[in-house]
């Protein structure tokens, strides 16, 4: 085979299995801890597998202190996160597809310079934008609302424009030319010729943006002031700051709740995922 190494197949599998163990163990440990009664979290040597599966830890984690003040409404946070993800994903896909089409398939003066500027902005780190964005959203009266966390997604982002443009360029020009000859407007070409052919690339963009929103911490930390409007990531940090250090089983249950949807999503969309990530490296 390709660059066949000096290792025998058995040795190779040994190493990979060992590596797999190391990579999976923390996840296993999270799951295991999340199902233990509290006493078993504090044993030395540790209890590897819970003596009984305490699924009620999950219920406790999401309803922790429901009867008292300071209750952390995880289900509400889940809804908030999904709302932001949905709005952001739709916006990101629509806007970036439009913009990328403009860059890939249409010729207009200044296009290449504009595209160059677009690429250059990929280097700008978020911390540089953090302060003025906050000031801007303050002027708009958006601080404390969901708006700063999803509306910008509707105006494109350099990385996704780049990704989709690369993809659109690979679609044969003849297809769209034929449609134009048939009397289609540019938008109709985009809508009925390009989009249907671009499902894989669009799913990559959608998936990445979903993950970004799901995982984002700094954005919600700055813009969300009301505890009822937190996202899951922010809620988990909040939970940790309130109940961390003692109730590790509940904290791990909460963490699992935040992680699990991502993993499930990954299993259903593995191919798109891996291809998408490979794509980001390729043309970089």
């Amino acid at each position: 085979m390709r660059a066949k190494g000096p290792l025998s197949h058995a040795a190779l599998h040994m190493i990979l299995l060992g590596g797999s163990f190391l990579f999976l163990f923390p996840l296993f440990w999270m799951l295991s801890t999340s199902l233990k009664p509290i006493e078993e979290t504090m044993l030395t040597p540790p209890q590897w597998i819970p003596s009984a599966l305490h699924f009620d830890n999950y219920l406790k984690a999401v309803t922790h202190g429901r009867e008292i003040l300071g209750y952390i409404p995880f289900l509400e946070y889940g809804k908030n996160t999904l709302l932001l993800c949905a709005l952001g994903v739709v916006g990101t896909v629509i806007s970036n597809a439009l913009i990328a089409y403009g860059f890939a398939r249409l010729r207009w003066p200044g296009r290449n310079i504009f595209f160059g500027i677009t690429l250059a902005t990929m280097m700008i780190p978020f911390p540089v934008l953090m302060v003025p964005m906050f000031v801007l959203f303050r002027e708009l009266g958006w601080v404390g609302t969901f708006r700063p966390l999803w509306i910008p997604a509707w105006f494109g982002s350099a990385f996704n424009i780049f990704l989709l443009r690369q993809f659109f360029l690979t679609i044969p020009r003849e297809l769209s030319d034929a449609a134009v000859v048939d009397g289609c407007s540019e938008f109709q070409v985009f809508r009925h010729v390009i989009l249907p052919l671009s499902r894989p690339a669009l799913s990559v963009v959608a998936l990445f943006y979903f993950l970004f929103t799901w995982n984002d911490f700094l954005g919600p930390l700055i813009y969300l002031t009301d505890q009822r409007m937190f996202t899951l990531s922010l809620g988990l940090q909040f939970y940790q700051s309130q109940h961390g250090g003692t109730e590790w089983h509940l904290l791990m249950a909460a963490a699992t709740i935040v992680v699990l949807p991502v993993i499930v999503l990954f299993f259903f969309t593995q191919r798109t995922f891996i291809q998408g990530i490979a794509l980001t490296g390729m043309k970089g």
């Binding site: 207009w108 677009t118 934008l129 964005m133 105006f155 424009i161």
Partner: peptide
């Protein structure tokens, strides 16, 4: 036709780039 269409397609980005990148950078 392509010029106008092109500008129309990228118009969200003109706003996005200006409002969410260029302005913050200058302000910063």
């Amino acid at each position: 036709r392509e010029l106008w269409a092109g500008l129309a397609f990228v118009s969200p980005w003109v706003v996005g780039l200006g409002v969410f990148l260029i302005y913050p950078i200058v302000a910063s």
